[in-house]
Design a protein around this nucleic acid. Structure first.
Length: 166
DNA sequence: GCCAACGTTGGC
DNA sequence: GCCAACGTTGGC
């Protein structure tokens, strides 16, 4: 099962919106590399949800792929800012999976926290100038962020030492 | 097929 | 608001 990170500006669609909606089409992505990742997503894959262009910037929760990608309806909608005159129903150009809400973290795992975690050194989203809105994650990257989110800043579960006898 | 110009993204 | 990074466009 693959792991992903999806980026969104909370002004346009936030984790709160996803929690409210339950599921949503991850539409409006207009970048070929990101599209290829979207169409690679399988049902039950998990994705970190990342808020950009806001304060604080960072990972805010988890989503799950509910249905594999279908043609993105906004490419056919002349009223949409994502309308693509070159796309046809017979030959769609853009695709979007249906994603579902899994959880919203109690506190945002902020970008600067991610940046100082050695295990995340290769995470695509942290690369300067990275603009890809959908990126694959290693299991280790995904697990590391979840561990931080759930209160462990501990280096590794196996290395955790209790200092009290409790 | 190259590449300069341009528009957009997004962290700071 | 600035600006670096990036993708796209279009002239040649």
């Amino acid at each position: 099962m693959a792991r992903w990170l999806v980026k969104t500006e909370p002004n346009s669609y936030s984790i709160e919106d996803l929690r409210r909606d339950g599921t949503t089409l991850w539409d409006g992505v207009r970048n070929y590399q990101a599209r290829n990742f979207l169409t690679s997503m399988k049902v039950s894959d998990l994705a970190l949800v990342y808020h950009s262009g806001t304060d604080p910037i960072g990972v805010v929760g988890v989503a799950r792929v509910v249905e594999a990608a279908r043609p993105d309806p906004t490419q056919f909608d002349q009223e949409s800012r994502y309308f693509d005159p070159a796309a046809t129903v017979a030959q769609p150009r853009w695709f979007c999976p249906l994603v579902g809400f899994v959880e919203q973290f109690g506190t945002v795992v902020e970008r600067h926290q991610l940046q100082r975690e050695p295990l995340l050194a290769k995470m695509e989203i942290l690369r300067k100038g990275s603009r890809l809105s959908v990126t694959p994650l290693t299991d280790e990257e995904f697990d590391t962020v979840l561990r931080i989110a759930h209160g462990g800043s501990a280096p590794k579960p196996s290395n955790v030492r209790r200092t009290s006898g409790k």
